[in-house]
């Protein structure tokens, strides 16, 4: 009798343990543009969490080709992964994939951009990220005794996500000082184009004290144009966005650099959060429609808390634990529909 109850107890414990750790075994991720640094780091985050949970992660790169993405999604469904994660190449293009996934009962998670018919999405809040950077820059200006922010926005006006970043940045800045957008530029998100357009803009009017870049390349391009024009860096504040790779860390750690603020979006953290979301979805846990991933304004004083930067070896290691502690919004303050 005693033996039987022992046995029962053991079985109950075991099944309980199993139900808790009933993780998916295989997860597929289709990235839209795998050669980009940002996505490299998103994949790194996904992989890190997958390794912790003992999940087999398989990644495919659609390389900005929606047909390719559709094909790859079908491949994953045929192979029978447990959850499919996708960064849509474009929002309309993935709708049929989502429909098919639903029909086949394949749990699907989107990254970055929402699409019609999706279950859940993990993504940063562009407006809020920009806002945090603007807030940090505003504080710096106030501490310097400045009353006006004259901004060169090295942006990407064709994309709603980057417009939201610029908007958030400016609105936060206006909370502290009189904020004027002197230049609104299209740097294509590339450092070389940004250098070029910023050079021209600075030639027209170099009475600027803030450069904001919608990504690291844009911010750096703006700063390089400033340097090439031989302008003094003392009163300048540069803020970038994304924490995509090593660019901001290299610049921020230079002696006397005006690159003081980075609206960090922690791509590794995005991946880490996304993997958790995928597991929750698989386990039938109630998931939000939009899981917001952490963002934070990084400065030279606080970045070490989140990134262990090896300058000589040109490597960075993220501290997932601390990133997870960053308070995140449940909902973005503004969406592209608010533009």
């Amino acid at each position: 009798m005693k033996i039987v109850s022992w046995f029962l107890a053991a079985i109950i414990t075991l099944s309980l343990a199993m139900s808790i750790s009933a993780n998916p075994k295989r997860i597929g991720y289709i990235v839209n543009y795998g050669t980009h640094e940002w996505y490299q780091n998103v994949i790194f985050g996904l992989q890190s969490r997958a390794d912790e949970l003992g999940i087999d992660l398989e990644v495919m790169d659609a390389n900005l080709d929606i047909n390719k993405q559709t094909q790859q999604a079908e491949d994953f469904m045929t192979k029978g992964v447990d959850v499919l994660i996708m960064t849509p190449v474009n929002e309309e293009g993935v709708v049929p994939i989502l429909r098919k996934a639903k029909a086949e009962g394949m749990p699907t998670v989107l990254e970055g951009n929402p699409a019609k018919g999706m279950t859940t999405l993990f993504a940063i809040c562009d407006y809020d990220a920009g806002y945090k950077a603007g807030d940090a820059v505003g504080r710096i200006l106030v501490s310097r005794g400045e009353s006006q922010a004259r901004v060169m926005d090295v942006g990407l006006p064709l994309l709603s996500a980057t417009l939201l970043r610029s908007l958030g940045f400016m609105e936060a800045l206006a909370q502290h000082v009189d904020a004027v957008k002197v230049h609104e530029l299209d740097g294509s998100g590339m450092i070389d184009s940004s250098v070029e357009v910023a050079s021209a803009a600075l030639a027209a009017d170099s009475n600027i004290n803030v450069i904001y870049g919608i990504n690291d390349g844009s911010a750096l391009g703006g700063l390089q144009a400033w340097r090439a024009a031989g302008l003094p860096e003392d009163d300048l504040v540069v803020a970038g966005t994304g924490s995509e790779g090593l660019a901001f860390l290299n610049e921020m750690t230079k002696e006397g650099t005006p690159y003081l603020v980075e609206a960090a979006m922690f791509p590794e953290g995005v991946g880490y959060t996304g993997m958790n979301l995928a597991v929750d979805l698989f386990n039938g846990v109630d998931v939000p429609e939009h899981k917001v991933t952490p963002t934070l304004a990084l400065t030279v004083h606080n970045f070490a808390k989140y990134y262990d930067f090896d300058k000589a070896g040109q490597k960075r290691a993220i501290n997932f634990e601390n990133v997870a502690k960053i308070p995140t919004e449940t909902k973005c303050t503004k969406y592209s529909s608010d533009l």
Partner: peptide
């Protein structure tokens, strides 16, 4: 170029003469 290096290569040598080539006068 991506086979050569997946990530962008940042200036860690910080040799002033190199910056002079593009930015100097």
């Amino acid at each position: 170029v991506y086979v050569y290096s997946m990530a962008a290569i940042y200036n860690t040598h910080l040799i002033p003469l190199f910056s002079f080539i593009g930015q100097g006068f």
